[in-house]
Amino acid sequence: MSYEANLRVWRGDADGGELQDFTVTVNEGEVVLDILHRLQATQTPDLAVRWNCKAGKCGSCSAEVNGRPRLMCLTRMGTFEPDESITITPLRAFPVVRDLVTDVSYNYDKAREMPPFVPPERDADGNHRMQQIDVERSQEFRKCIECFLCQDVCHVVRDHEDNKPAFAGPRYLMRLAELDMHPLDGVDRRRLAQDHFGLGMCNITKCCSEVCPEGIKITDNALIPMKERVVDRKYVPPTWLGNAIRRRRQ
């Protein structure tokens, strides 16, 4: 059944903007992204929205719907009352480019800082051998579609721009955990995780896990185990003693 929905969409750019009211037709089964496309096609052809797959696989159409970080392609209109006003705003943790499009380069900068994967030599027959049970831990984190909703919601940076240089955010701390649990990787990134990427700033409020559209248990399965590994490295007596001696020599 079709109905007319009330939409409040933030429009503007880096210099400022405002919520604008629109009335748009909604048909059965549609998602928020469909409604924005209809708005583009009929009322606001220059409305800036980022999207690609429209199937929850690419992580492009991230925005805040009634204040909650969401993928607009997976937010069904049916979850709202027909007479409810739906407010759509850009991700708050990133600078606005225009309308619902934000500058997400913070994330790509953090990705560039990541020390890459380093594999061992292959077996004599040219294969790497790994057991399914061992690859599954990192596979969970590789489901990440880089929608950056976890980065957006994380309170360490959401309202604290000044923390960004020292804090990589859940997505990249999870990437560190993914590499740490990768059966083939040969690099120890635990010190970097703490000192450079700011793992210690995470105080496990689990907001990131709550908004993850892939249902990845970011906090429980990646960040907490990673924190434990960092602690192991720091406080296992021989490591601690070795580091202490090294520091004294310097």
Partner: peptide, 20 residues
């Protein structure tokens, strides 16, 4: 396909530990 594993890809495995 094999070189993707050298770059970090994690494919599902066979019981022998090879790429399924």
């Amino acid at each position: 396909v094999r070189e993707l594993e050298d770059w970090g890809a994690l494919f599902d495995r066979t019981p022998d530990g090879l790429i399924s």
